[in-house]
């Protein structure tokens, strides 16, 4: 068995997560999509970021 098996497992897992989320959650709505780039637009960062600390913000 080669690493190719591992690659197939990893990519399949990612596809499974996306499909699972699509079927059970809210699908994306392209009509509510933000501007292509945050910079220079009015639709900025989502704020959903690793450093986000609710309750201890600046």
């Amino acid at each position: 068995m080669t690493r190719r098996v591992g690659i197939i497992i990893a990519v399949s897992a990612v596809v499974f997560i996306v499909v699972f989320d699509w079927l059970l959650g809210t699908p994306p709505d392209p009509y509510r999509a933000p501007d292509p780039m945050a910079f220079g637009s009015t639709s900025g960062a989502s704020g959903a970021i690793c450093s986000f600390a609710p309750g201890a913000e600046e």
Partner: peptide
Amino acid sequence: HPINASALKGSILTDTT
């Protein structure tokens, strides 16, 4: 928190990370 609740409600195809 609204930011996290929104991420949880939305699609992972619209979540940056």
